[in-house]
Design a binder for these strands. Sequence first.
RNA 1: GGGCGGAUAGCUCAGUUGGAAGAGCGCUGCCCUUACAAGGCAGAGGUCACAGGUUCAAUCCCUGUUCCGCCUACCA
Length: 928
Amino acid sequence: MTRRQLDKAYDPKAVEDRWSQEWLARGYFHASPEQPGQPYCIVIPPPNVTGSLHVGHALNHSLQDILIRWRRMQGRNTLWLPGTDHAGIATQNVVEKQLMTEGLSRESLRRKRFVERVWQWKATSGGTIVNQQKQLGESCDWDRLRFTMDEGLSKAVLEVFVRLYEDGLIYRGERLINWCPRCLTALSDIEVEHEEVTGKLYHIRYPLVDDPNTSLIVATTRPETMLGDTAVAVHPDDPRYRHLIGKKVRLPLTTREIPILGDSILVDLEFGTGAVKITPAHDFNDFEAGERHKLPIISILTARAEMDGIGLREAQADASLNLVLKPVQKARAIVVEALAERGYLVKTEDHKMAIGKCYRCKTVIEPYLSPQWFVKIKPLAEPAIKVVEDRRIRIVPESWVNNYLGWMRDIKDWCISRQIWWGHQIPVWYCTNCNQEHILKTGHAVGATAEHGMLPDIAKWNFTIAQEAKPIVARTKPARCPVCHSQELLRDPDVLDTWFSSALWPFSTLGWPDQTPELKTYYPTSTLVTGLDILFFWVARMIMMGLKFMGDVPFKDVYIHALVRDAEGQKMSKSKGNVIDPLHVMEQFGTDALRFTLASMASPGRDIKLAEERIEGYRNFANKIWNAARFSLMYLDGPRTALPPMQRTFPDRWILSRLNQTIHAVTTELESYRFDRAATVLYQFIWREYCDWYLELIKPVLQTPEHPDGASTRHTLLETLETTMRLLHPFMPFITEEIWQTIPHQGDSIVVQNYPAANDAWDAPDAERYFMLLEQTVGLVRTGRVLLNYPPGQQIPFHVGHDDPDRQNQLHQLQRHLAHLSRGTAEVSPSHDWQAARLLRLVTEGLSVGIAVADDVDLKKAIDRLAKQITDTDKEFQRVEGKLKNAEFVSKAPPDVITEHQERVQTLSRDRALLADSERQLRAMLAV
RNA sequence: GGGCGGAUAGCUCAGUUGGAAGAGCGCUGCCCUUACAAGGCAGAGGUCACAGGUUCAAUCCCUGUUCCGCCUACCA
């Protein structure tokens, strides 16, 4: 039995690569429906396939790996299913940027070659994040790696689209939607980020047609859109204006006249001037008002948010303004200037407002009128609300439940079409014959993204498919039009929102729509771990789709963790340069240190402020563990005997009892997703109890050859170390495996060992009581040693005693340990028997320690300390006694509380007397 | 505008059936004591944001205020 000696310090690099490869080679993470055990499944929130691991992933994945490794060790049939997301807009943007550096564009490549190009990019960069995940030690079943655009997942997407359409839950409609003028695509409501800015509110005078000397003054934040106004609204109850309803105003900078109408929904009497311009094409509220009053819609912006020539003609705008193809900002300046010059601008004031920005590229979004595909969401949302209300899905922390419910109850239809090329193309075709009038050749519209390569001959131009066109929705391309049998079918050029496919993730990855064994075994999955930023994007939609297509919830628990910020609490971003790169950190401090740090900081309801010093601290923790193992290995040679716990030595019984408490606590905390508390408990046990006390307590036995307790102690040492490694393994997989492999063990890998289960036979409350007395006593002696400036190595004689005879007796039994840990010779005797001269006496809670004072010792520190403690004791005495003197306290507080207070008062007063006595003695010595 | 969360040691944070304030890091002092200086031992440091209320008793429960976050919303 030759055992490898461990290096003096833990070197993560030497360990991590080796084990992550070995684990994969041995297939420990591969799951199978045939395996025994209750299934436990997590699907990973798929990161962007072309992304790389950032610290947010590191947190998210570390927590999942902790759960997965824990459940695997508990014997569950565990599947952690990894994968990546095609991230339509984001990925397309990345590739377009690449093309730009080559002087190319997606339009120049055309759709087919562009999409090929994106696949190439995916092929070269797609492995990056997966390899980084493996580096983090993630115990995913990599054989089941999925990608949202895989064949199987794409099949699921088509199936869902067609079935939702057949159920009347998908429709196409021309609506005002959120449009990103840079990405040139529609966005859903939640893909718009709102940002508070101080803008300007412009007051503009619109003269009455009948009476040009009278004007209506409207207020707007977007003066350039006034060219597209088709009415002005006032409140029907507004005495200032109501007589004007039905009259007309002349729209400045145009030759048009527009009506004044009354609208109590749009107009707020209190705000601005009380008159509102209505621009149905460029404002959501105005659009609705336009529908109410059947107003014409004049769109004056292009898809790129430039002033549109056709629109301006329709608006009869003054051509001399030269606005065509001017971007919005520039157009605004021109319009404002023209209004001012011509006397229409009344005033301009600062105004706080929120502007919407594209969540992918931060460009200001525009409301844009175009035909789009929508999911009718209410029928899907209702059951998704119910399952959370009924707690069939548990959201942790629970404070997010209301947030979820509030959003779901107020949910709007989901715009799912995107005018980009990278993604799942919508499975809809149009017969070009039947829809001749509805497929419009145009250079000006939303559908302009379709182009030659992918389309039938007939469609070799840019086009718009009007709302009236009749779609043929099918899983595969229909051979011919069912009405006219034409074979000239044009596929809808749009692709689906990426989140449409990720909404299916918990079942599409398991094989749906096929009824696979995986699907039957692992659905519903157990836990979803995610950041709150995608609660609505992803979690809510998975719940809706899971209920709709699987008839059951997609997961039972949703654990929502916080965002990782920098040490100052700032959001990390590349532009701020405050990004902590997890790979760099892993290189520097070790993967286990990073994982443990993230786990220990994952307190619910709080963002994580991550500073490198924290990670360094847990690097030190890893080193501490390493050295504890090293120590153990040095002394493990020799026979080992397993005695029943009751027959073991006091230190052994104590540490087993503590270990059992720790196992219990870690398990309970993990069950309630308190990773932070589980980590703290482990840290405290290993460092503060196991290393600081247990290993010190057993040194005399281990270092004495042929010690009668040797064999049993060595057994306990190994047993507790091995158990602790298993307990810690989900948090720090690498170092625990390395140590476990080095110490005597049975089995191939710690990965597949049992997780420690609480064992009540290990509980030893008596040993724990003894220990507390021991700790208190040793602490007092050490304090006295410092006060008297005795060096740590110097052996000192000291007395110990206790007011309580039971405790006094316990001190007798602990005498050997007291002497060893205090480095001296301990004499246990009642404190009143001690010779008072030349003795520093320290007292706390009835426990007295007396240390001989040498001739040349400076007593000032000791006297100060005694004085301070006396003062503190007095304060506490008065406080407690004050309560006892309060008649109401004595009559109303529970008896045990009163008794406890009475005992405390007595102890305090006795302590005080002894302390004061000691102080007098020392002062007397000083005076000599 | 609405909703939610937070305010506890210098910093980051724990702290549930209300009953003597905790950890880590940092700081101070002493130690290279044969597992570990990435360490050991000891120590300093807190009217628990503010003001009321309930209670014998409040960091904890209630109300209000202030200051930070976040989510959400069409106030032109």
